[in-house]
Design a protein around this nucleic acid. Structure first.
Lengths: 240, 240
DNA sequence: TGCTTGCTTCGGCCTCGCTCGTAGTATCGG
DNA sequence: CCGATACTACGAGCGAGGCCGAAGCAAGCA
């Protein structure tokens, strides 16, 4: 009844290793089947089924039937936010030591529900700041007037970032592995979709993995002076 | 070892009703003793002691000895953020029905770690937007140039909101009871401290409770055209 | 119709961790 | 010193909930 009780119930849902593994697997925003999630969590389908039912009842995930498969995805992007926050806090342990995923390719580039994360995302954000396309504080960011023009010229749709009269806004998100801000929010999503639609990047086999295409290599170099390999690793710190 | 496992461990910490109750009690930013927390959670001091040790080990709270008392507080404001997010998600249950605390005074006005929340906080934010002192989207906000001057004239210290060249930024935070944004972040904190220092508001007996002083009534009316009673309830919707 | 695959329900086992009673250690007061 | 207060450490009890095997539906396919 009381709020702390239902809060505890919600946290307890995430507090089981199996359910946590499934939720983490869904943070990239895609929908997965019950069997896939069971395999990821390392449990039998029966057990997974029970967990998935609980997660649905607590509004953490949603399900859609398709033939004999059931696809599960996170209910809202707020759930993804929550998981990310928990990842950061759980990896805290003071002192700098290695946070984030162990897989070096995921450290270089990965998706974070609906925007980019990893070394390339942080570098891209730095570049946008350097070029005065955006300005950032710890808690918010704005797109400058020339920046807004530059991004529109590139082909981005920025309408969802608008205030009534002032400059367009965006949101920083602390990168799990880099511990420095990358772009989330409306601009982060617009960029992510732009890169996917223009085939600069594509999803890879690993859950949150992304790879850069040849076209993307050229694009990042030309548009942002970022020299990356096909895994998203930065080759050098090219001058702006 | 793997990330989902430690994430689950962290979530499981919050997932116990007793620990959740203690964490919720600490969200107002104050430090409480072990006995007080035990009473709040409705458990014996021995049990509470064990919980508090676990929460410390997981970096969720910090402790300072003072005489024979031990004072516990949340480790960082990020922990408070996390708890707030969980409160919102756990109160979700689709449809509008009553969210937030049951106590009508807390619904009208309360603290949220280091900024204001509740009906007054939302109304104040609305007023700041109406007067074009700030502009807000769902994920970020800016302080306009005239707004920045107006707030400085009032006596606020805005230096922590700065970007290098652009307008000052602030952060919206979804209000638990009102479901509309109120001000958090640097500007939210600056306003909260200003109100406390100028004795417009003062902490009350209940955990996150705040009351408006006579001085505050005059201040809110004069500076923001907000007519409130001593509990923070809005008396009328005065024209801007 | 009958077989396979994907998923769920049911029931029993078993472990983890919450709980409190008892007992032990710091701090303050007289 | 002695007692009271604030808190912590240890150990036993016990209940909730995760886990899997077996069985039951439902959907696709032949």
């Amino acid at each position: 009844m009381s709020s702390p009780a239902s809060l505890a119930a919600m946290a307890a849902q995430i507090g089981d290793p199996g359910r946590a593994a499934m939720l983490c697997a869904l943070v990239d925003g895609r929908a997965l089947t019950a069997s896939e999630l069971a395999a990821i969590a390392g449990i039998t389908p029966q057990t997974a089924s029970g967990h998935l039912r609980q997660l649905q009842e607590n509004q953490l995930i949603s399900m859609v039937k398709q033939g004999r498969h059931r696809y599960f995805r996170l209910a809202t992007s707020e759930v993804a936010d929550l998981i990310e926050k928990l990842q950061i806090l759980s990896g805290d342990r003071r002192l700098p030591p290695r946070t984030g995923p162990r897989d070096p390719e995921l450290r270089a580039l990965r998706s974070c529900y609906n925007h980019l994360a990893g070394g390339l995302a942080v570098a891209l954000t730095d570049r946008l700041v350097d070029r005065k396309i955006i300005e950032l504080t710890e808690e918010a960011g704005i797109i400058t007037a020339p920046g807004s023009r530059a991004l529109s010229d590139l082909g981005l749709d920025l309408k969802s970032c608008s205030t009534k009269s002032g400059p367009r806004l965006c949101r920083p998100c602390l990168d799990w592995s880099e511990r420095r801000p990358h772009l989330a929010g409306a601009l982060g999503t617009a960029l992510f979709r732009f890169f996917l639609e223009e085939a600069w990047i594509s999803r890879s086999a690993t859950p949150r993995g992304l790879t850069v295409t040849r076209r993307g290599q050229a694009g990042f170099r030309q548009a942002f002076s970022l020299d990356v390999d096909l895994a998203g690793r930065l080759r050098e710190q090219a001058a702006a």
